[in-house]
Design a protein around this nucleic acid. Structure first.
Length: 830
RNA sequence: GGGGCGGUGGUGGAAUGGUAGACACAGCGGACUUAAAAUCCGCUUCGGCGAAAGCCGAGUGGGGGUUCGAGUCCCCCCCGCCCUACCA
């Protein structure tokens, strides 16, 4: 018998073209079915789609296809996050325009994205580096500015000396640049920030979000909300020449105002603005030496992997007065106090804070206990570590005897407020979002500087501020745009006098903070999105991407949506209703893939050899989708074999249809296999358990082949044919090309991907003979074939009559008999 | 230091408190073939007994507990990975 052979390459090309020409995956805004916005994180166009992209997009696509078959109007767009540093680095290295480099990469990656056979809605594609996109990025910046959410300030910035640019806190990893790993320095620079801190509290709420616990926790920790008090200590400025002494108040932030009687010293961050004024002439030399040391050592220390850095510091020679106890304690500076958190000043309570304790012990500062345990064993002289929560208050005047509790803290705050020394307050770890980049390849910040009018926003009708193509890349530390006179020089929108443009560009995370909105209507030339379609499609129902974006992109996008809502531009609170993180595909050696290890698997090669369907299936079969796993070159062979077996089963069954049907006993077995497969596979798809879904489909195929072995004529039984048809439908999300091909060979003219998802009959998922497992005293001792659903009495009688059960009981009478009908299990205790 | 995830055959991994190892990979044996590839069939947790069907024992990082029954739940310990890190 001449049989067609499964040759994926041909089939896949054919169907990809056909789907494109029929707009099969173009989501219509006026479709009456319920919408489903199925989103994958958009790629950066680095040049080639790597296996991680394939993994992410295969899972996303399978899920989208499943939802489409379940009756949803699925919108599954794709685009490119196309601004960013690599384009500029490539420009410098290869003497090619960043724009050219990027667009060429995009062209190549579009082909690769197509070769995956995913149901992308290409009509909605967005490319963030094109003026029709970034004009709206700039417009959004102006809205943030208008609403007081964008501001410019001179503040210390993370500076990467190699990339010659500032970095956001999120881009600093272990004190080094996340991209080039140079040690990050601190510099004072004028820069733009977005006021994300205004939304800190709301960002801590995840109402209605189906997000991984881990990701929510990471965001919560990143935001780092601490309740406490701001307390003003009073310092005396040393007498300057010709002036008398002066008293100034220095606020500290503390979460433990209840330990204020335990303060034995006071510490400022080295960068604190009052350090200079509070240094006595005697200490000036030592202080300046220390400041120099901190500047030199901080970054090196941050690099060191030492668990605890030894505490360093130096006294200023001046003192502060504790506003509650009236006591005078010395002021120090130390680099364990950070200018960027709280107020940059802390009250030192060594007995009850471990960092303060280490500092005090090192410099011989007294340790005063203000919380005592029941047995009064705490002694400031002898204790070896700080004790944070214990017993009751002592040495604290009117507060003595109060327990370690939130009420006690409130009592202290009340007292502090009464004497006018401070107030209850909340501090966050989260800082405002620094968005200025001294780089060329990004969206220009639409601001003009005028001598008379300062920073003036570019009028909206003059957008976009177009990025010029011809620039020189010089390692100056400034944006190359500064050296393009046609760009730099302009006129003030207010007075018309000569003015200069802002030459910094925006952090690319801005571009990716709203792209999911642009997808809802990417052709709108008059708005960033159309209210009506955005309302229809948002929020995103399922968002799939890597967990590494937890504290950056995913937090920024939430902030954007909340801010835009408050500006009246959106009517939703959250962008992504359900979030899912795929795992990582490792090299065959179980290690992270990297060029230096030589364990990189190139998707294009594998597809050329096995076809996209096999690659898709294998990626999903490797392990749980959220865990990933090592790539195994033999593993994909197994999956390819499975697709071949399915192909043969299908083509042979189709060919065997002669018009005559055969009613065979195996037909009803085929029907049961079919209903069981539907039940199992549907659940697995819904929970993104693609590995077990595929295992279920393999069992389905193996089962049908076994029936065929028993009686080859079964393939003309209508129930067998129905089972084989169902196999195609169930496999379609995973292997879209081969199933489409066979579906048409089967005689259908409409795409299999528009089929409704099948239902199953629970009654038909039950076998008519089941194995009853018998445990005696907890050990499996016997198995017997029975019809399901025996009564307790029937089961008891059958089981106790079994010789193996008898011998296991060794003549004892059964004390207890448990029959679990649903589990087909009996347990005898004797 | 803090937080999270995980530890199951030679390998990747299955397993609503109910037959541990589904489904695959690799391996071994066999069929087909002049031969090989491909394909198909069988075996494959470990130890012991048996000619075999099979039987007995152990077994999910280690120790304890709850339960008729624990990979799964509880307590203690060990190991690995990821994130985070002087946040007052």
């Amino acid at each position: 018998m001449a049989r067609s052979k499964y040759s994926p390459t041909e089939i896949e090309r054919k169907w990809q073209e056909r789907w494109a020409s029929e707009d099969l995956y173009t989501a219509r805004d006026d479709d009456p079915r319920p919408k489903y916005y199925n989103l994958a994180m958009l790629p950066y166009p680095s040049g080639d789609l790597h296996i991680g992209h394939w993994y992410n997009y295969t899972g996303t696509d399978i899920y989208g296809r499943f939802q489409r078959m379940r009756g949803f109007n699925v919108m599954q767009p794709i685009g490119f996050d196309a601004f960013g540093l690599p384009a500029e680095n490539a420009a410098i290295k290869n003497n090619i325009q960043p724009r050219t480099w990027t667009l060429e990469n995009i062209a190549r990656m579009r082909q690769q994205l197509r070769s995956l056979g995913a149901g992308w809605d290409w009509s909605r594609e967005a490319v963030t580096c094109l003026p029709e996109y970034y004009t709206w990025t700039q417009w959004l910046f102006l809205q943030f500015y208008k609403h007081g959410l964008a501001y410019r300030t001179n503040a210390p910035a993370n500076w990467c000396p190699t990339c010659n640019t500032t970095l956001a806190n999120e881009q600093v990893v272990n004190g080094t640049c996340e991209r080039c790993h140079s040690v990050v320095e601190r510099r004072e620079i004028d820069q733009w920030l977005l006021r994300i801190t205004k939304y800190a509290d709301e960002l801590l709420r995840y109402d209605g979000l189906d997000w991984p616990e881990k990701t929510r926790l990471m965001q919560t920790n990143w935001i780092g909300r601490s309740e406490g008090a701001e307390i003003r200590f009073i310092a005396e400025v040393p007498e300057a020449k010709g002036k008398g002494s002066e008293r100034i108040e220095i606020p500290v932030f503390t979460t433990r105002p209840d330990t204020i009687y335990g303060v034995t010293f006071f510490v400022l961050a080295p960068e604190h603005p009052l350090v200079d004024r509070l240094t006595t002439p005697e200490q000036r030399g030592a202080v300046e030496a220390y400041l120099e040391q901190v500047r030199r050592e901080t970054e090196i220390e941050r690099l060191s992997t030492d668990e605890s850095h030894p505490k360093t510091g130096v006294p200023l020679g001046t003192f502060v007065v504790n506003p509650v106890s009236g006591e005078k304690v010395p002021i120090w500076i130390a680099d364990y106090v950070l200018m960027g958190y709280g107020t940059g000043a802390v009250m030192g309570v060594p007995a009850h804070d471990q960092r303060d304790f280490e500092f005090a012990r090192k410099f011989g500062i007294p340790v005063r206990v203000v919380y005592q345990d029941e047995k009064s064993t705490l002694d400031g002289e002898t204790m070896t570590e700080a004790v944070t929560h214990v017993g009751h208050v002592i040495n604290s005047g009117p507060f003595d005897g109060m327990p370690d509790s939130p009420e006690t803290i409130r009592a202290f705050i009340k007292r502090i407020e009464e004497i006018g020394a401070g107030k209850a307050t909340v501090s966050y770890r989260l800082r405002d979002w620094l968005i200025s980049r001294q780089r060329y390849w990004g969206a220009p910040i639409p601001i003009v500087y005028c001598e008379d009018h300062g920073a003036v926003p570019v009028p909206e009708d003059q957008l976009p501020v177009v990025l010029p193509d011809e620039v020189q890349f010089k390692p100056t530390g400034e944006s190359p745009l500064r050296y393009v006179p046609e760009f730099l020089n302009t006129t003030c929108p207010v007075c018309g006098n000569p003015a200069t443009r802002e030459t910094d560009t925006m952090d690319t995370f801005i571009c990716s903070s709203w792209y999911f909105l642009r997808y809802t209507d990417p052709d709108d030339a008059l708005h960033p999105w159309t209210a009506e379609t955005a309302t229809k499609w948002m929020p995103v129902d399922m968002y799939i991407g890597g967990p590494e974006h937890a504290t950056m992109h995913l937090l920024y996008a939430r902030f954007f949506v909340k801010a835009l809502r408050d500006m009246g531009l959106l009517a939703i609170d959250e962008p992504f209703t359900r979030l899912y993180h795929q795992g990582m595909v490792l090299g065959p050696d179980g290690q992270k893939m990297s060029k230096s290890r030589g364990n990189v698997v190139a998707p294009d090669d594998v597809i050329a050899r096995y076809g996209a369907d096999a690659v898709r299936c294998y990626l999903m079969f490797m392990g749980p989708f959220d865990q990933g796993g090592p790539w195994n070159n033999q593993g994909i062979e197994g999956v390819a074999r499975f697709l071949n077996r399915a192909w043969s089963l299908l083509t042979e069954t189709i060919e065997a249809q002669t018009g005559e049907t055969a009613e065979k006993p195996q037909g009803s077995a085929a029907e049961r296999l079919r209903h069981k497969a539907i039940a199992r596979v549907t659940d697995d798809y819904a929970e993104l358990r693609f590995n077990t879904a595929l295992a279920g489909l393999m069992e389905f195929v193996n089962g049908l082949n076994r029936l065929r072995e028993e009686d080859p004529a079964v393939i003309r039984d209508a129930r067998f044919l129905a089972a084989v048809d169902e196999l195609l439908v169930l496999l379609a999300p995973m292997a879209p090309h081969v199933t489409e091909e066979l579906w048409h060979q089967r005689g259908h003219t409409e795409s299999i991907h528009l089929r409704p998802w099948p239902e199953y009959d629970p009654a038909l998922t039950v076998d008519n003979i089941v194995t009853l497992v018998v445990q005696v005293n907890g050990k499996v001792r016997d198995r017997l074939e029975v019809t399901p659903g025996l009564s307790d009495e029937q089961a008891r009688e059958l089981v106790l009559a079994r010789p193996k059960v008898q011998s296991a009981l060794e003549g004892r009478a059964p004390k207890k008999f448990i029959y679990v009908r649903d589990r087909n299990l009996a347990s005898v205790v004797g």
